[in-house]
């Protein structure tokens, strides 16, 4: 695996259904890549990405804007040809067997890609015809989807006039209409409020329960936390992967919250230190990530903060993200 020094944990991304210790056969993976890379001009967008995503799991790409989430998904759906590397999706090699895969995968694009000037039902009907569903089967499936995704009331509404959350539900309905084995969701909830996001994830867990493998990209921590497995991407490079628990356990940093006065100055003082990965003010506290290599990080920090109070806390996924990306994006 590349960029050893940056990768916090090298554990295989194993979904919850599979115990850590059991080695998986190649056919147990929905997606396997080795050294997958994409260069636009001379600018690398994705570099040397190794993924092994077990069937039936919900796998997340977590990363800031422009880190290569969409580019990776486009390579995995056969829309972009990789500059280098090997890709196996559902046992088929890419590039080469895109057309075989079309019926087996579903793809919900980052930008709404159904037709604004068709109604909800017309859009779904169009998709059903494209996938060659018979009239009766199509009607049943569409009615079912309208119910599941709570769109029955809107079935005559133009897709373009719907709210962000409704559009996302329609897009998910369209992407799952042909019952794909593997579903790609590119930032599916970026325009959705927390309440609707929870609803949306309920539907994803339903799909997962029914056996669908899901790859979802996001830059929301709460969303990433729901995934069975996760890859943290930055600048097209995988900084860490594993289950959210593994990532938090193996973070390589200690999280300590400091409370007291004049936190602003303290923050500036601490961020200059080699030993501190990041320091971010959260309300009246300063959340400090200290390198684990120190023999006693808590003791070291207490010497830095004077009279202020220290409190060691459990790391969050955001802390993992910050420690992986060196605090360049958050905090």
């Amino acid at each position: 695996m590349m960029s050893e020094q940056n990768t916090v944990t090298h554990n295989k991304a194993t979904g919850k259904p599979v115990p850590d210790t059991a080695p998986l056969a190649e056919s147990d993976y929905a997606i396997l890549t080795r050294g997958m890379s994409k260069v636009f001009g001379d600018k690398p967008a994705v570099s040397d990405l190794n993924l092994s995503i077990p069937k039936g799991s919900i796998y997340g790409f977590l990363g800031p804007n422009g880190c290569g989430k969409s580019t990776s998904i486009r390579m995995l759906t056969g829309l972009l040809r990789p500059s280098a590397g090997e890709i196996t999706v559902l046992g088929e090699t890419l590039p080469g067997s895109e057309e075989h895969l079309r019926r087996r995968i579903g793809y919900m694009t980052q930008k709404f890609s159904l037709y604004d000037n068709l109604t909800v039902k017309e859009n779904l009907h169009f998709v059903s015809q494209i996938f060659g569903l018979k009239r009766k089967a199509a009607k049943e499936r569409i009615d079912q989807l309208l119910t599941v995704y709570d769109l029955t009331g809107q079935h005559k509404q133009m897709a373009g006039s719907m709210s962000g959350g409704q559009k996302q539900r329609l897009a998910l309905a369209a992407a799952t209409l042909h019952k794909p084995e593997l579903l790609f969701l590119d930032e599916p909830t970026s325009a959705v409020d927390p309440e609707n996001r929870r609803e949306f994830w309920e539907r994803l867990f339903d799909l997962s329960n029914a056996g669908t493998t899901i790859l979802v990209s996001t830059h929301y921590m709460d969303e990433a936390e729901r995934c069975h497995g996760l890859a943290i991407l930055e600048n097209g490079i995988k900084r860490a992967d594993g289950s959210p628990e593994q990532l938090m356990d193996n973070m390589g940093a200690v999280v300590i919250e400091v409370s007291g006065n004049d936190l602003r100055n303290l923050k500036n003082h601490l961020t200059e230190k080699e030993e501190v990965i990041s320091a971010a003010q959260i309300g009246t506290r300063l959340r400090v990530l200290v390198r684990q290599e120190l023999s006693d990080p808590e003791h070291w920090l207490s010497q830095q903060v004077g009279q202020r109070q220290l409190n060691r806390v459990h790391p969050s996924l955001e802390d993992v993200f910050v420690s992986c990306t060196g605090g360049r994006h958050v905090g």
Partner: peptide, 13 residues
């Protein structure tokens, strides 16, 4: 331009 094509070309059309 409107992004419909990205969806359309992942279908069997």
């Amino acid at each position: 331009e409107q992004g419909n094509m990205e969806f359309l070309i992942t279908t069997p059309v």
